[in-house]
Design a protein around this nucleic acid. Sequence first.
DNA 1: GTGGTCTAGACCACG
DNA 2: GTGGTCTAGACCACA
Lengths: 129, 129, 129, 129
Amino acid sequence: MILNLDFNSDVPIYTQIREEIIKAIANGNLKLNESLPSVRNMAEEIGVNLHTVNKSYNLLKDEGYINIDRRKGAIVNTLPLPKNDLNDNKIKSMLDLLVAQTYLTGMSREEFLDYSNKLFDKYGVKDYE
Amino acid sequence: MILNLDFNSDVPIYTQIREEIIKAIANGNLKLNESLPSVRNMAEEIGVNLHTVNKSYNLLKDEGYINIDRRKGAIVNTLPLPKNDLNDNKIKSMLDLLVAQTYLTGMSREEFLDYSNKLFDKYGVKDYE
Amino acid sequence: MILNLDFNSDVPIYTQIREEIIKAIANGNLKLNESLPSVRNMAEEIGVNLHTVNKSYNLLKDEGYINIDRRKGAIVNTLPLPKNDLNDNKIKSMLDLLVAQTYLTGMSREEFLDYSNKLFDKYGVKDYE
Amino acid sequence: MILNLDFNSDVPIYTQIREEIIKAIANGNLKLNESLPSVRNMAEEIGVNLHTVNKSYNLLKDEGYINIDRRKGAIVNTLPLPKNDLNDNKIKSMLDLLVAQTYLTGMSREEFLDYSNKLFDKYGVKDYE
DNA sequence: GTGGTCTAGACCACG
DNA sequence: GTGGTCTAGACCACA
C-alpha cells in the first residue's frame, strides 16, 4: 500500500490519506472487499501518528467508501456506493468551482472534457456495463 | 456583491471568499476590469474582519485572478489568465480526485460530462469563439 | 538565532526577518534540514508579534527557502533550490539597479567584483565543487 | 522620457520612478546636466499624482543623483557623485543579500559575475578611463 | 506544542 | 480613502 504524501503541503495529512485511498480504490489497487492495512500498520508504514490514520479511516467510513469491522478491520465497500445526496452535492459543488477556474485560466472546454474522459477510462468502464 | 458563505463550515472563510469571487468572475457578476469592493467595505458587508478579506484578495492576486492597484484598489484581471503551469496542475489534480469520487459514488460518466457542459455554458462561450 | 533588525527602518520587519534568515542560511548559521525556532519562540526572542514572524516564514516558504512541515515546524530546504525563473528574474532585476547605482556613485567595477567575490567566498565554495 | 512602471507591483510608484531614473542616468538616456521633465509634466505623462513624482525627485536629490534648482528645475548631477558612505553602505548591504540569494538559488558565481560585467558594459566604461 | 485562523483595533504609506 | 503593517489575544486543527 503505497501512498503519495507530501508532508510540506498545507493539505492536512489525514486529507491526503483519504484522497489517496479513494484513488486507490477507484483504479483497482484496492479491490472490493479487500482489507486495508490496520491503522497501526499503516501509521508505521507511512510514518505518521496513529490518530492521523484513524481520522482518515473514519472519514472514509462516514462517506461510505469503506466499512470498519471489529474483527476484519477496514474493508473496501461494495460499489457503487448507495446513492447519497451529500456526496452528490459535494461533487457538483466542487465541479462548479473547478469549471469556473478552468474557464478563467484559459483551458478549453474540449481539453477539460478530454482529460475527464481519460480519467474515467483509467478508473474503469463501469458506465458502459 | 453577495457571497454565499457558511460560517460553520470547516473550510476557512478566506477560502470560501476566494472561491465565491472566482465563481462571480466566471459567471460575469464581476466584470473584467471592474473594481471589487474595498477590503473594508467587503468585510463590513459580509460581517467578517478586514484581515480575512485581505487574505482572500491577496490569494486571488497571487493566483492572477485580480490585480491590486494602489490607485484603484482590487480589480478583476483581463482574461483568460496568462497560462500558468501551477494553476493547470492544480486543476488536473483536483479533477483526478473528483473523477475518482464520481466513479465510486455511482454518478455516470455521462451525467458528469453533461453537468460539466452545463457549467461551461453558464460561464460563457469563450471556447466557441 | 540572532537577527539584526532595525525597528526604525521603513523596511517592514517581516521583510528584514526574511532577509536575515536568507543570509543565515547562506552563511551556514542555519544548517540544511535544521529546524528554525517556532514562530512563537522566534517572536518572543526578537520582541515582535508572532504574526509578523509567521508572515516571514510563509514568504520564505513561498520562495522555496524553507519548508513548513506539520510535524517538525519550519525547516531549511535542501539546496540549491530547484531552479526558479521568478527568483532568477528578481535577482537579475535587482542586480541591474545595483550596478546602475554603483556606476553612478563612483564605486569601480573592480571594487564591485572584488566585493562580490568576497561574499561568495563567505557563503561557500559550491561553485568550485 | 519613458519610464517602465508597473502599477500592479507592490513596489511603491515613487520607488519605481526613482529606480527608472537612476537607470536612465546610468545608461545615458538622461545626460549630465540635462533637465528632467517638470514635476507637473512628468506626472501627467505617466499618469500619476504630482506628490508621487515630487517624492521621487526629492529622494533622488537627497541621494545626490540630481539637483533641484528653482529656475531650471531638476537637473542631473555631474558624475561620479561625490563619495558618500551612506550610498556605499547601502550598496554593499544590498549586494550582500543579493549574493546570499544567488548562492542559495543555485546561480553560479561565474554567471553572477558575467551578468554584472555585462551590466557594467551597458552602463559605460568609466572605470577604464 | 506546532502552525492556522480569526478578531479587534491602531497607525502608516501611498496616491 | 486605499491597502499595508503591526499588535494583542483567542480558539482550533493537526500530529
